[in-house]
């Protein structure tokens, strides 16, 4: 089975600033890849290069077996791209929006398809309502329906669930998985950890560079992080104060509060243990080593990079 996305050394610069830096990525058909990374790390730019909206400065690759440089027109016929912003027409009704998408793709049996899509959405009664009047969750559902009308083989979703309530998010993911089971390939960007864990595989990008790829477990294991959960031993102990003391100590790379608990960790196990030694002798806190979460891994990666600056 061929890969739906296969790109090597993809690079894009804007005014001398490298936004995507030699990115290579392979996504097998029928898989859901979670594309993660801080804001401004180059996720959207990568997606735009994949669907032919941007021409890469360097690198090459194929999308659905088609060359992203020379065959973008053919790629566009077979992909569905849901942009970050709601990008249907707010001054068109639900039906009119879907009808426009169907016409643009020259779909046969247009009316029937549009009606079926509206029914699937459960919006039959509201089909003449303007898209601009819909709530965030419904807009997202409508946008997804619009980019699925022409039955794409690859779905590119740029933060599809931003500002959507948990119930709608859950339904969204159920739908995505059902479609992936039928062979649709999905590349989805998100900032939600629970969503990342729903993907078959994840790719983490920072400063335009791909830092890690693989399943969630592989990425966590690959980060080689040692973490401790710290709980207050008595009512007078403040994890907040402890966190302030721990920050900046060499060897400690992760200090993150989780409710009353504190997650502390580092990439170098020996250095971390040595650094924590004096703190663990204090009787105010209970220390327990636990498995790092995906979020621990990401937080440990993040502080080293602030947007617009390159990593030292």
């Amino acid at each position: 089975m061929s890969a739906a996305i296969e790109v090597q050394g993809l690079t894009k610069r804007f005014q001398g600033r490298t936004v995507v830096d030699h990115l290579s990525l392979t996504v097998p058909q029928g898989r859901i890849l979670g594309f993660l990374g801080p804001n401004g790390s180059g996720k959207t730019t990568t997606i735009r290069m994949l669907c032919g909206l941007l021409t890469p400065d360097e690198g090459e690759g194929r999308c659905l077996g088609l060359d992203i440089r020379t065959q973008s027109h053919a790629i566009k016929r077979q992909i569905g791209y849901m942009t970050q912003r709601f990008s249907l027409y707010e001054d068109l009704s639900i039906r009119e929006n879907l009808d426009f998408s169907a016409r643009v793709h020259g779909l046969p049996e247009r009316k029937a398809r549009v009606e079926a899509a509206i029914e699937r959405l459960g919006l039959t009664a509201r089909r003449h309502q303007l898209a601009g009047e819909l709530s965030g969750g419904w807009k997202q559902r409508l946008a997804l329906a619009a980019c699925l009308l022409h039955q794409p083989r690859l779905l590119l979703l740029d933060e599809p669930t931003a500002g959507v309530d948990p119930k709608a998010r859950r339904e969204f993911w159920e739908q995505i998985h059902a479609m992936a089971a039928e062979g649709l390939t999905v590349l989805v960007t998100t900032h939600y950890m629970d969503e990342a864990e729903r993907c078959h595989a994840i790719a983490y990008i920072a400063q335009g560079k791909l830092l890690a790829t693989g399943s969630v477990e592989e990425v966590i294991r690959g980060a080689g992080l040692t973490t401790f959960s710290v709980a207050p031993a008595h009512g007078g102990a403040e994890t907040g104060l402890l966190a302030r003391r721990l920050r900046g100590v060499p060897g400690i790379e992760l200090v993150a509060p989780f409710g009353a608990l504190l997650h502390v960790g580092g990439g170098d196990r020996e250095a971390l243990l040595a650094a924590l030694e004096p703190f663990r002798r204090e009787a105010d806190f209970l220390w327990r080593e636990d498995a790092p979460t995906l979020e621990d891994v990401f937080i440990q990666w993040m502080p080293a990079q602030s947007p617009g600056e390159s990593r030292p």
Binding site: L53, K76, Y81, F86, S87, L88, E90, V104, H105, G106
Partner: peptide, 14 residues
Amino acid sequence: ERGTMESLLVTPLR
């Protein structure tokens, strides 16, 4: 301005 251009560009419209 409304961000609909991007969706338009990714359709097969020439």
